[in-house]
Design a protein around this nucleic acid. Structure first.
Lengths: 250, 250
DNA sequence: TGAATACAAATTGTATACAATTTTGGAAGC
DNA sequence: GCTTCCAAAATTGTATACAATTTGTATTCA
């Protein structure tokens, strides 16, 4: 099962470089298509070239940057279609994970833990209205449920593939949660998602692999709908982390 | 569309390190679970630590190595189940690519090029018996068809995810082709695969997204069967590149 | 004026020195 | 005999010097 937080002592320079560069890109300090000169990053982040290079390589693997010809790295931009495809890939792999969980079976205690997680989400939805705290808590619980779902597959290989697919900007399950407070009717979206969570868990409990697969795929389509909503809402776009990476339709 | 060969002038030290380490691991010079000290690799490959480190990082991303606690890298071993899962992930993503191709449509000239590729495979199967040349040619053409299939999806995101999934040892479509000459009845396996290739192409031509998805998944199961055959055949195991990475069932 | 070339600046690739950390081996103490 | 601690060795993390390459710019020649 995956260790959610590796619990590291003090962050290395390489970690600082990774987080620092990702932050610079997400904040739009470097725009899509722009080069990232190593020395500029050394200046901005205060670490030497060695960890900077390691971070650039990692971010290129992650998909945020791309190696440019004949050398160096540039910021990658994402079209609406590309983001939709990334969500589709994530949903497909999540569905595979859920199917495996249903086929291979999950222990009663683990199912109970997943159900507990859903209970807490319901509690949250019952009493709270969208706001700062609410969104942070929902995001955390939603994340936990999805982590547990993948772990339930029992396959490290699938978990790995899924983690990679989810690391693309806007592809993860919480990509749009942080700004749903600004979108009208978002509470109803959360409620719909939660109903799907229950159905997914029930299908796994019933070992119904044929049913759980389309359920998870459908669940991933919420992200799709959120993408559409955000793109039509300028106010939301301003507050979406990484918004400068999105290539709007010409 | 993906550039199969980046056409680089002379290989960098980093490239040499990457290929060199992969080769050492596939040949079993370092066994599963064993550490890869940087200085040992410097000695063996004759390049300095900087490109060695870049290569280690890349190979860990690829899945061949894993970062070990609290530092360094070790060779990753693969159980039979893990290899089966990797094939399943690859098949799932390939099916997604094919479905997208069917949904979005593929130009007539591209379909014709894919058909040409299949014609050449048929020609090869008609006249040749399994042997050195035959396997190399089949492998090349099989690879070409699968590359074209992914490209037909029109999605770089999916192509990327698939390339990563296929880079895990034994997960690619040609993983077991090189030793099929040693397995009795292999020609019949190739013929069955080719019949599936035709059906897949016909389904895409007919824009039948619902039909192409299970066809591609079924096609990927050939790799599954080949895995079983190889594991039961000691002679074949000896000639399988990367065989030392496989953790046999205890 | 425009193109070609040579020179300068910027940038990345590589090697290596040094720092920090982890592991190892053994001696001392219980 | 076993554990504990410390020092030495091994190993990785980081910074930086130098080399090789690419890019930009100015100057010269047609």
């Amino acid at each position: 099962m995956a260790q959610p937080i590796p619990l590291q002592k003090d962050p290395s320079q390489a970690d600082r470089a990774l987080l620092g560069i990702r932050d610079l890109v997400f904040r739009g300090e470097f725009k899509a298509g722009e080069r990232l000169p190593e020395l500029a990053l050394v200046e901005l982040l205060g670490v030497s070239r060695t960890p900077i290079r390691a971070a650039l390589q990692a971010l290129a693997e992650e998909g945020l940057l791309e190696a440019s010809q004949p050398t160096g790295y540039t910021v990658r931009g994402f079209s609406e279609t590309e983001i939709a495809d990334a969500i589709e890939v994530r949903g497909t792999l999540e569905a595979l994970a859920a199917r495996m969980a249903a086929e291979r079976g999950v222990s009663g205690s683990y199912l109970a833990a997943m159900s507990d997680c859903l209970d807490r989400i319901e509690e949250l939805l019952a009493k709270a209205k969208p706001g700062r705290d609410f969104l942070a808590q929902y995001s955390q619980l939603n994340n936990q449920f999805h982590e547990m779902l993948v772990a339930a597959s029992g396959s490290e290989i699938v978990a790995r593939a899924l983690a990679r697919a989810s690391s693309l900007p806007f592809a993860g399950h919480n990509a749009f949660v942080s700004i749903q407070g600004r979108i009208p009717g978002s509470l109803e979206i959360f409620r719909a998602a939660q109903r799907q969570h229950r159905e997914i868990l029930e299908a796994i409990e019933a070992r119904s692999s044929a049913r759980v697969e389309p359920l998870v795929k459908e669940h991933a389509r919420i992200a799709h709908k959120n993408l559409q909503l955000v793109l039509q809402n300028n106010e939301a776009m301003k507050n979406l982390p990484g918004a400068p990476l999105i290539r709007r339709r010409p």
